[in-house]
């Protein structure tokens, strides 16, 4: 068993196999995506597509796990694939160096069991959620702002809660490393629960947290028409 020894017994051998056969699309390899990819690669999700059209910039260094000074100007998606190869060569990580658009979303996520939203804007989230719904793929959505974060799971039958994403974004509140790590941890856990089919997922509710006040709240989220 070796590298996955400490996954057990929290995850059964059967479930480990399920993870190894799973195909997950991670949209965004920045603050959230970097940590999400780290967790999924280490736990043994067999096939991951890491998608991001961006390269590393100095402003990423405060929080993005994959970022480093020698990697400024380097592709985030490519870096994710390289990191994965170093950490766990048993996992296949493909890099897609592009942003999510109406034109490419369908092809990008096709063939995956799960989509993870690690994006940084509402429009891209809307496009991703719409396509995931169309293709019958669950989506784990996450977002951060300053000290706060929010995570929920969308199933294909759900109405997309665009009101949480679209329209003016308001004032930038910054993005802190520990906020990203916290949100990403919850997203990775939700992803694993969806893939193995066990555990109570954040469906029909969202977890919202504020690390400044140490509040974690489970908020009902109506996803019906």
């Amino acid at each position: 068993m070796g590298r996955y020894e400490r996954n057990h017994p929290a995850i059964s051998e059967n479930e480990q196999e399920k993870l190894q056969k799973s195909r997950v699309f991670v949209a965004g390899c920045g603050g959230l995506g970097g940590y999400i990819l780290e967790f999924l690669v280490r736990i043994g999700v067999g096939h991951i597509t890491a998608c991001d059209g961006d390269t590393f910039a100095p402003s990423n260094l405060n929080r993005q796990l994959l970022s480093a000074v020698p990697l400024l100007g380097v592709s985030k998606a490519k870096t994710a694939a390289m990191r994965a190869a170093d950490v766990n060569p048993e996992v296949e990580v493909s890099a897609r160096e592009c942003f999510i658009t109406e034109e490419n979303a369908a092809e990008l996520i096709s063939g995956h069991d799960l989509v993870i939203d690690a994006l940084d804007n509402g429009n891209a989230r809307h496009i991703l959620a719409k396509e995931a719904k169309k293709q019958g793929i669950p989506m784990v959505s996450g977002g951060i702002s300053g000290w706060a974060g929010r995570v929920f799971v969308l199933m294909p039958e759900d109405e997309i809660p665009d009101y949480l994403w679209l329209g003016p974004a308001g004032t930038m509140r910054g993005n802190l490393g520990f906020t990203a790590a916290c949100c990403a941890s919850v997203q990775a856990a939700e992803a694993v629960k969806v893939l193995i089919g066990r555990g109570e997922i954040l469906h029909g509710r969202m977890l919202e947290f504020d690390l400044k006040t140490s509040e974690f709240e489970d908020i009902p989220l109506d996803l019906t028409k």
Partner: peptide, 23 residues
């Protein structure tokens, strides 16, 4: 979900959240 012009009724519970869009 509600808008500014959504009518409130007796016992209404209103949550005011904000868009959390960063990644």
């Amino acid at each position: 979900p509600a808008q500014e012009d959504t009518l409130l009724t007796e016992g209404a519970f209103m949550r005011v959240l904000y868009k959390i869009l960063g990644g």
